[in-house]
């Protein structure tokens, strides 16, 4: 989870010294550290892991009305979801949103970071401009982009004036639209609008990460490559980009957990969309739990979302632990 760590991996000696020292002094300091950690450990155990467990328990129950009913339902809620048109559409939307979002954020991030790294004037001004959207909340971004992209206002009004199609924002087409389960599988056209808004907001972050990464690469490496006769393009493609791999991994992890859990941006911007072309599990979970009172179904969606994020996070945590020890 710590993006900075991977970029400063080449400073392990200090770390070793620290561990040696604590091993020697297994006395007051050590005990105090444990003492101070205990309250937060207990709080996290109860309020994070305890509630995850509770949600898992609810997801296996029959609690699908205002009256709590904890009788065991087995995997019924999960089976219902995977057969449900809306949930299948949610999985498709999340998948393509995540792929498009992460790819765009990385590509634009690298390009802008490289441009910023050319020792230009007013670099900090540009850095701030790119980073600033991060300071907004997704809800604000959603409302603004909703106005910008709405067929009857904003950008699309201009597009339709010059005779171009302005309906893509509410388009229900799926490309290529292969029939799969109950849904058509492919990229929903309308989700591109959400990707644009999300990229606008989050690119600043990847720019900052890559810029830090670029600054961490010693000038000697580039010099060496140039002396070996590499063109400027080759320097970047063959030397710099491979060295930025740890940054890319961090960016992917962070962006993936944002996009898999996304709720506020979509809720504010397009809602579920016609035929659920922009629906995501987060929105479905909210509606089914708090409007339909299907608590067990909602809990099942929450658990599936947790597992989908875990697919990205757990291998990262394991590899970063290995890297430390």
């Amino acid at each position: 989870m710590d993006p900075v760590r991977s970029s400063v991996k080449h400073t392990p000696p200090e770390l070793k010294v620290a561990t040696k020292r604590t091993k020697k002094a297994l006395t007051k300091d050590h005990l105090m550290a444990i003492g101070f950690l205990t309250p937060s450990l207990i709080l996290i155990a109860v309020f994070v892991y305890g509630f995850i467990g509770w949600t898992g328990y609810v997801s296996l129950s029959n609690w699908n009305s205002l009256v709590p009913d904890f009788s065991f339902a087995g995997l019924q809620n999960y089976i219902y979801l995977f057969k449900d048109f809306r949930f299948q559409a949610d999985l498709r939307n999340t998948l393509f949103f995540t792929i498009l979002f992460i790819l765009t954020v990385i590509v634009i991030g690298i390009v802008l970071a490289i441009l910023l790294d050319q020792k230009i004037r007013q670099e900090s001004l540009f850095r701030n401009i790119f980073f600033f959207p991060m300071a907004l909340s997704f809800v604000v971004t959603g409302v603004v982009w909703q106005w910008l992209l709405n067929p009857s206002t904003g950008v699309n009004l201009f597009l339709s004036k010059i005779g171009l199609d302005s309906k893509w924002y509410t388009d229900t087409t799926i490309i290529p639209g292969v029939s799969w389960g109950k849904i058509e599988f492919g990229i929903p056209v309308a989700i591109i609008a959400i990707v644009i808004a999300a990229v606008w907001q989050m690119t600043g972050f990847s720019v900052a990460m890559y810029l830090a990464g670029l600054r961490g690469i010693p000038e000697e490496v580039r010099e060496a490559a140039r002396i070996d006769g590499a063109s400027e393009f080759q320097v970047y493609w063959k030397v710099i980009l491979p060295l930025l791999r740890p940054i890319t991994i961090s960016v992917v992890i962070i962006m993936a957990h944002i996009s898999l859990k996304i709720f506020d941006l979509i809720y504010a911007m397009t809602g579920s969309g016609a035929n659920y072309v922009t629906d995501v599990p987060g929105v479905y979970m909210y509606e089914t739990t708090f409007r339909g009172n299907y608590y067990a179904n909602g809990a099942a969606i929450a658990i599936i979302m947790l597992l989908s994020v875990a697919i990205f996070i757990v291998p990262y945590l394991i590899s970063s632990r290995k890297g430390e020890s």
Binding site: Q146, N150, P151, S152, Y169, T170, T172, G273
Partner: peptide, 8 residues
């Protein structure tokens, strides 16, 4: 109905 119903 109007074409852009789902955004209104």
């Amino acid at each position: 109905i109007n074409e852009d119903h789902s955004s209104r």
